[in-house]
Design a protein around this nucleic acid. Structure first.
Length: 154
DNA sequence: GCCAACGTTGGC
DNA sequence: GCCAACGTTGGC
């Protein structure tokens, strides 16, 4: 099993939104970056867990945990002309964009980006690297367990 | 709102 | 295939 960090602008989809969806699940549509797509298409497995990050907001950081509850499937919004994620180059026969479904697991006490930067154990975290913009990044086993201890201590 | 960093596009 | 121009991301 692998661990991930997924970013979302809370004005689009927040952790509370996910918690309030019917069956607490949502298709992780709208990822339009090849590296992030490849993580979902090729690496994510059913049952993997992901830290849920709020970005482009007043208080960026980790707000919850979700699980991966589907295999990779075509992102439905790429075929929807009314969606801002519509991609005219994509076809049902040969979809360009793939995604997974995620399910709410729990909210956690907010861990700010400033706090995360304080821990030497987390200096390699992708989301803390200068210039990082990837909205889906892998989390190492060590980083995951360190963060679990952080949560338990809050 | 600024701006550094990065990804993508497209002319050549 | 190079690379300048452009658009986007996202912390600050």
């Amino acid at each position: 099993m692998s661990f991930w960090l997924i970013k979302s602008e809370p004005s689009e989809i927040s952790i509370d939104d996910v918690a309030n969806y019917s069956n607490k699940r949502v298709e992780w549509f709208g990822i339009r970056n090849y590296q992030a797509r490849n993580f979902m298409r090729d690496k994510m497995q059913l049952g993997d867990l992901a830290l849920f990050w709020h970005s482009s907001c007043k208080n960026p950081g980790i707000y919850g945990i979700v699980s991966i509850v589907s295999g990779a499937h075509p992102d439905s919004m790429q075929f929807n002309p009314d969606s801002k994620y519509f991609d005219p180059k994509s076809t049902e026969e040969k979809p360009i964009w793939w995604c997974v479904d995620v399910e709410f697991q729990q909210k956690i006490p907010y861990i700010s980006i400033q706090e995360l930067r304080n821990y030497p154990e987390l200096t390699e975290m992708k989301v803390l690297q200068k210039g990082n913009r990837l909205s889906i990044t892998p989390i190492s086993n060590d980083e995951w367990s360190f963060i679990q201890h952080l949560i338990a201590g809050k």
